[in-house]
């Protein structure tokens, strides 16, 4: 019988062989299919609207709004970005829009999207809620060129 030897890893990795993200443990919060749905929703809504939609899932602390705004400011291009911050443990979802994003996404539209998201979340469907919320937000924001012609 052969035995598995626990060899120490040698630090001889090159750029190509160094440990990368694929080697780290895969956190199974979402399945591959759900990750693909999230990825597509974020990417396509960002491309269609020209805004930058990002999604944060995790704890938001005691003051959820402040924490979400802090995160929003930390991401790239805060003026044009829209942050969806979901804290499933606290049952809170925050949508933060930057100043120029807020011109195309009024608070009422965000509230409507939040309403549909919380409906899905209450049913236990995190990914579906996020995807639908992103769809609503990007529909409301519209295409940048159309928005420019309109005004």
């Amino acid at each position: 019988m052969t035995r598995v030897l626990h060899a120490d890893p040698h630090d001889t990795g090159t750029v190509d062989t160094a440990p990368n993200r694929a080697d780290e443990g895969y956190d199974t919060v979402f399945s591959y299919r759900e990750l693909a749905r999230l990825d597509e929703a974020l990417t396509m809504s960002s491309r269609e609207t020209g805004l930058r939609f990002t999604l944060y899932i995790g704890d938001l602390g005691k003051q959820t709004r402040l924490r979400a705004e802090e995160l929003h400011a930390r991401g790239g291009d805060p003026a044009n970005s829209v942050l969806l911050a979901v804290s499933p443990g606290q049952r809170v979802v925050e949508v933060v829009t930057g100043p120029s994003a807020a011109r195309r996404l009024p608070d009422r539209a965000c509230a409507l999207a939040v309403l549909s998201m919380t409906n899905s979340f209450a049913a236990g469907d995190l990914v579906g809620g996020v995807v639908n919320g992103l769809r609503q937000l990007s529909d409301q924001a519209g295409h940048p060129r159309l928005a420019r012609d309109h005004h």
């Binding site: 990002t54 003026a79 979802v93 949508v95 829009t97 100043p99 009024p106 965000c110 939040v114």
Partner: peptide, 24 residues
């Protein structure tokens, strides 16, 4: 999608923020 690391906060005020909040 690419996950950002949550490092030190660097809040930069860019103007009035909008948005909405919901609980379930």
């Amino acid at each position: 999608a690419t996950a950002l690391s949550a490092g030190a906060p660097t809040p930069a005020t860019v103007g009035p923020l909008g948005g909405a909040r919901g609980t379930w």
